[in-house]
Design a protein around this nucleic acid. Structure first.
Lengths: 190, 190
DNA sequence: CCTTAACTACACGTTTGCGTTTACTTGAGG
DNA sequence: CCTCAAGTAAACGCAAACGTGTAGTTAAGG
């Protein structure tokens, strides 16, 4: 059900997708759908939560410990089109666009997620021994979100490349603190 | 009418705004509204076009000739909240999110506008004497769109600052061609 | 076999929103 | 004064979409 909702929300937009659509795609009866999710808003929230635990988002990319921090950061810029070939932007930004009220539950969820991601990137940047991790992390997530948005509008999955190059420049030019405890991970390029 | 539509689309979202809402806000009778815009999609398109000629978008910022190119580029990162204090993202990206079909008129309009902006920025970057203006221009517009998106989600009008600083770093570190014809404008920082 | 939980199919009530119809009003200009 | 263009107001048709009600079906487990 959540998988079906994800696909439909991503390809048609949230508002343009009806509960009947989701039920038909699940496939499941409408009654069952409503048994699990009392309102559409509940479904939207559950689906966003589901995305986080399904490997489709950057959350997994950023937290896997078998990859050096720098590579995890740069992995944010690998934009993948959906199986049908259409490129969609960040689902949280999209959800926020379709639920513009900052006080609404959906927008609040998206906001929270953006802050979580920022915190993760900040930690990674810090691990790289960069002096002021906060501002650089902000710049990196701005690049990631911008690349996702533009890739969606222009329908060009290859769009992350420029953003990735910008990220590398920013990483390379950020002042580092005198290299105490940089624990050998991902400090130098290539 | 278009001004009313702009405000409503921006604050409530396009799909969530009804034709009745627009008519009431204009204020104008619903019949008159439909006399000017046969369908809602026509209104959306006309409104996007209206935004371009009303100083609310970056188009004007990028094309004014009384400001040096570098400052025009950096002016992209001055994100302004709407009069009601709510920060909305780029209206073209928002429209594309709410009309995800890449073949649809609205999405196509947004895409075209993004390409126009990119071309403008490319010209400006070129004027600065930068060697490969294309990639840098892409990076700059990615930063601008990312900043707008995040400012919207986080409802923080001050969000352009980090993006602007990143843009300055990228501009300063871009290789320049041996300075033929740099016509004295905005080449050095500050 | 019986109970129980979950699901299905399908019809329904209600609201909403697009776009139209109809009848009426206003105002500019010869 | 008459015409004509444009707007107003309010009701309407119609389809879609949210969410519910009802009755029947499956399947697990003792």
């Amino acid at each position: 059900m959540l998988a079906a909702a994800s696909i439909l929300f991503a390809t048609r937009g949230i508002t343009a997708t009806t509960m009947e659509d989701v039920a038909a795609r699940a496939p499941v009866s409408k009654r069952t759908l409503y048994a699990h999710f009392p309102t559409k808003e509940d479904l939207v929230l559950a689906q966003l939560d589901y995305l986080l635990s399904s490997g489709y988002t950057l959350l997994e990319t950023l937290t896997r410990t078998d990859v050096p921090p720098r590579d995890r950061i740069l992995a944010m810029f690998d934009i993948q089109p959906w199986p049908d070939g259409v490129v969609r932007g960040c689902p949280f930004i999209d959800a926020a666009v379709e639920h513009p009220d900052p006080a609404g539950r959906v927008h609040a969820f998206a906001r929270k997620q953006k802050l979580v991601m920022l915190a993760l990137v900040t930690d990674l940047v810090d691990e790289l021994g960069i002096d002021a991790p906060g501002p650089l992390a902000e710049q990196l997530v701005i690049l990631a979100d911008g690349a996702a948005s533009r890739a969606m509008v222009l329908n060009d999955p290859d769009y992350g490349r420029h953003a990735r190059e910008a990220a590398e420049i920013l990483l390379d030019h950020a002042p580092r603190r005198p290299d105490r405890a940089t624990n050998g991970h991902g400090l130098r390029r290539e």
